[in-house]
Simulated assay, not measured.
Amino acid sequence: MDEEKENCTIHPAVAPLSYLLGRWRGEGEGGYPTINSFRYGEELHFSHSASGKPVIAYSQKTWNLNSGEPMHSETGYWRPKPDGSIEVVIAQSTGLAEVLKGTYNAEDKVIKLQSQVVANASKVREISRVFEMVNGELCYRVQMATNVTSLQPHLKAVLKKLS
């Protein structure tokens, strides 16, 4: 197999989530009982190398819609498995680290993640994330629980694919 073809090969475990691959951009809004509501711009990037590993690399960055100033970023890896389960690790720019497990439905294009570990967080104790395709757009919702609140809505966004 020549190198150019090899670089286009998607691992069979990644294939059901290949619709994620590329760059996504859009806007979101956040809030929580302990903070003021806010809006933000966002870009997600999902990539898969031809390393032969069943892994999707993930990165995210957000910015203030008015000033353009950076707000938040995170990076990590998504490991889908053939049985419809998925493992995700994410490191946030705030120093928080998440280990999430969940499921994906390739036909409905829905991914549901629940934190197993939230590390280096003085206040956050649980996170859930849901990603789904709706009319060709990638939508997500993040819920969070802290030491003083139960699991509640925190972030939601709608993103369009750039490439």
Rank of each mutant, 00 (worst) to 15 (best):
N120W: 07
K156S: 14
Q116L: 13
E126D: 10
A157R: 13
G31S: 11
M133H: 03
H48N: 08
R79T: 15
C8H: 09
N120P: 00
V148W: 08
F38K: 11
S67G: 08
R125W: 06
P33E: 07
I127S: 12
A145H: 03
A13C: 03
P33M: 06
S67N: 07
E29A: 11
Q143C: 08
Y40G: 08
V158R: 15
I86L: 09
N36V: 14
D2K: 08
E87A: 13
Y104I: 11
E6T: 11
E6W: 05
S51K: 07
N66V: 03
P54C: 00
Y140K: 14
E3A: 15
G52A: 01
S47H: 14
V118R: 02
M144D: 03
F46R: 02
W63I: 00
R129T: 09
V88N: 00
K61L: 02
K112C: 13
M71A: 10
S47E: 09
F131T: 05
I127T: 04
R129N: 06
N105F: 06
P70R: 12
V148P: 02
G22H: 12
S150Q: 09
G102A: 06
Y40T: 07
G52H: 12
R39L: 10
S150V: 08
S47R: 15
R23Q: 12
A13T: 07
A106C: 14
P54N: 02
V148C: 08
A57G: 08
Q60T: 02
F131H: 11
N64S: 04
V88Q: 02
V118S: 05
V55R: 01
L159D: 14
A145K: 02
T9I: 14
H72L: 06
K101T: 14
S150I: 08
K156C: 13
K53D: 06
E132W: 12
A57D: 12
P12R: 01
N135P: 10
Y77R: 05
G30H: 03
Q60I: 00
P80A: 05
S18M: 01
E43Q: 15
N66Q: 12
L21C: 12
F131L: 12
L113R: 02
H45I: 10
S115P: 09
Q114S: 15
T94I: 14
V134A: 13
V14A: 01
N105W: 07
V14C: 01
V110P: 06
V55L: 13
L20V: 11
V142G: 05
E27I: 03
K123E: 12
H72A: 03
E126N: 09
A15Q: 12
S93T: 09
E69K: 13
N135M: 13
W63A: 02
S47V: 14
S150E: 13
E74G: 05
C139L: 10
V124K: 05
A13N: 14
E42L: 05
P54S: 06
K61F: 00
T34K: 15
G84V: 07
H45R: 14
K5Q: 06
I127Q: 09
P70A: 07
K53I: 13
T9R: 10
E42M: 09
V89P: 01
L159P: 13
A119N: 07
P80I: 10
V158Y: 10
A15V: 10
A13S: 09
S49L: 06
G52M: 03
S122C: 04
P80R: 05
T75G: 10
V110W: 02
V142R: 13
L162M: 15
F46E: 00
E137R: 15
K61M: 02
Q60N: 15
D83L: 08
K61G: 04
S163A: 11
P54W: 00
Q116W: 10
